[in-house]
């Protein structure tokens, strides 16, 4: 078990900022901070579950049939998360309901199953799922906080902008998602090049 299994997914291989995976939920649900956090946590739960199961059964699943097996496993965990969220976080489920089933086709989840969990020990795979999920959650939350702040003048539903501030609605509309993601991408690239001491 290596600690890097956990940390790689958060910084070095951040699914959003470094790998550019899972753009659909990233762009679609980040209209408010609570949506971003919830989507990130739901995906984290699915990632840990599917990585665990894929790693556990990797010796048993024949190479030719691995993708159908992975998809069934992932779909199973997504549905479980969907059911529990509907039961115990009903209001959140109403806001995100449309996007939860789409975690099945989130390429981050299948990507980690295929590229990591299928060839790593169980403990590392769960850590990798957790790390990737945390990285995804951080990215989604950061994007969602910025969009909500500019687009509605609130953060997590609390008004933080002064009363004379006129919200820029564009930020919470679909084009705003692309604009803000672009700026955040540029910022993280700039920061990581600074840390590395310039250049890639």
């Amino acid at each position: 078990m290596r600690l890097s299994s956990l940390t790689d997914g958060i910084f070095k291989n951040n699914a959003i900022f470094k790998q550019m995976l899972g753009m659909c939920p990233t762009l679609a649900v980040t209209t408010s901070a609570s949506n971003g956090v919830a989507m990130g946590l739901a995906t984290t739960a699915v990632l840990m579950g599917s990585n665990f199961a894929v790693s556990l059964f990797s010796g048993f699943i024949p190479k030719n049939a691995r993708i159908p097996c992975y998809i069934v496993i992932i779909a199973c965990f997504v549905t479980v998360v969907d059911l529990y969220m509907n039961a115990y976080f009903h209001a959140l489920h109403k806001a995100l309901g449309l996007f939860i089933p789409l975690i099945v086709v989130n390429c981050i989840v299948l990507g980690r199953a295929e590229a990591f969990a299928s060839r790593s020990p169980v403990a590392d795979s769960v850590l990798d799922g957790l790390g990737t999920g945390i990285g995804f959650t951080i990215a989604l939350t950061a994007l969602a906080v910025c969009r909500e702040l500019v687009g509605a003048g609130t953060v997590f539903g609390y008004a933080v902008a002064p009363s004379f501030y006129v919200p820029v609605i564009l930020a919470v509309l679909p084009p705003g998602a692309f604009v803000f993601l672009g700026f955040m991408m540029a910022f993280t690239r700039f920061m990581s090049s600074k840390i590395k001491g310039g250049g890639h």
């Binding site: 048993f60 024949p62 159908p68 479980v80 059911l83």
Partner: peptide
């Protein structure tokens, strides 16, 4: 046969989990 067995087993296990969760 191995492929059929694997996909069937995975689907069956997932089915059980889903039933319980539901």
């Amino acid at each position: 046969l191995k492929i059929i067995l694997a996909v069937t087993a995975v689907s069956a296990i997932c089915g059980l989990i889903l039933g319980a969760a539901y």
